[in-house]
């Protein structure tokens, strides 16, 4: 998605240094001060992980650290909120993947 460079009230967006990081082994460029979530969104990436069990795609939901939907692995640390983590040069970000679930046989928790 585009950056909002002109704003009628807030004025021009200040220029920022470029920051290079990787997401699932692909290199992307964001800007200094960007969160992982925003840097990826500005590169048109919305899917930050897949649900552990169902594999459904997930992205930014609350953007302020409450919902943990945007959690990713940052420099090998799991469970980092992409919306609270500021990008750094050479940062390695990985999406959450669907996990094997050999024990569940499609039963319910009902009985």
């Amino acid at each position: 998605m585009d950056r909002i460079n002109h704003h009628p009230i807030l004025g021009e967006r200040p220029k920022k240094e470029a920051v290079t990081f990787t997401f699932d082994n692909t290199t992307y460029v964001g800007e200094e001060g960007d969160t992982v979530a925003v840097a990826l969104l500005s590169n048109d990436i919305r899917t930050l992980r897949h649900h552990e069990e169902s594999g459904s795609a997930r992205g930014i939901y609350c953007n302020i650290g409450h919902c943990f939907e945007c959690r990713v692995t940052v420099n090998d640390i799991e469970g980092c909120r992409a919306c609270l983590t500021v990008i750094e040069d050479n940062m390695k970000v990985e999406s959450g993947k669907r996990l094997p679930n050999p024990l569940k046989q499609g039963g319910s928790f009902d009985e």
């Binding site: 950056r3 704003h7 807030l10 969104l41 459904s56 795609a57 992205g59 939901y61 609350c62």
Partner: peptide
């Protein structure tokens, strides 16, 4: 739960604070 669905507050922070279009 689809990517692209967000709380309205999330879009507010993106737009006004982070200056990226939701």
């Amino acid at each position: 739960t689809l990517p692209g669905v967000m709380s309205v507050g999330a879009a507010q922070v993106m737009t006004t604070v982070q200056r990226v279009k939701p």
